[in-house]
Amino acid sequence: MNKLLPLAAVVLLSGCAHKLGEFNEAGGINATRSTCPAVAIPAATGDITLFDPPASRDARAIDVTAYMTNVRVSCAPQGDQVVAQADFDVIGHRRDTSQARDVTLPYFSTVVQGGNTVIAKRISRVALHFDAGQADARTRGSGGAVVSLAAATLPEAVVTKINRKRKADDADASIDPMAAPDVKAALARASFELLVGFQLTQEQLRYNATR
């Protein structure tokens, strides 16, 4: 999977100001975290370039470019589920402004669990409309995720293990509970991401990664 570019993650499980992994004053580890999926644009998928002719990669052949920006995230529990939505703007630019033109671009919204397991993917499209004489256009897109609240919540036994008070003379006082295999596995299972980006061809991905 591509490296992720963090954009937003909101709505903590409690009002505690501490974050997951921070030591608290009692000698435990704070386990405050979000049940909301983290929202991100995978590297090299946040913009797209169309060429004319399509096979050319010369800068003079660039026909249309577009990029995603202004990502806005909403997330809230709804019954036994957590519903998240990412809204974003798509801004496009074209070379030839002689005539009015509509350009349709595909994009994906994918829900990933544990950093590597895709549990849902949807392909959608946004349409950019350029008036005659207009070089720039703007439109909006959105992607959503519905996640089980139970799946996104750490088991109580794991939270207790992380938060357990430790004294300086305890045998495991210097051992980070977050590094325990069962804790790491539980954190992975309860972690979800909502990824949005342009649905690119392999050639378009290579262009974005190497330009």
Rank of each mutant, 00 (worst) to 15 (best):
R57I: 12
I91F: 07
E156P: 00
A168E: 12
R101C: 01
I123W: 04
F51D: 10
Y107A: 04
D80R: 09
V103A: 02
S148I: 09
D58F: 02
G115Q: 03
V146P: 02
D87Q: 11
R95V: 02
D87H: 07
L105M: 01
V90L: 08
P155E: 05
S98F: 02
K121Y: 01
E156F: 02
G144E: 13
R140G: 05
G144P: 00
G144C: 03
R125G: 05
T110R: 15
S148G: 14
D80W: 00
Y67D: 11
F88W: 11
M68K: 10
P53H: 09
A127V: 15
S142E: 09
D80F: 04
A137T: 02
V112M: 08
T69S: 14
R122D: 15
D169L: 13
D80Q: 12
A120T: 06
R122A: 14
V71R: 04
I91S: 06
D169F: 13
C75M: 08
Q113F: 02
K161F: 09
G92C: 08
E156A: 13
P106V: 03
A100S: 14
P155L: 05
G115Y: 03
V90F: 08
G115W: 03
L105K: 01
S148A: 09
L154G: 03
V64H: 07
A59P: 00
G114V: 08
A76V: 11
V147F: 06
A66F: 05
F51N: 07
A137G: 03
N116V: 06
K167A: 14
G79A: 09
A55D: 15
I62D: 00
A76Y: 12
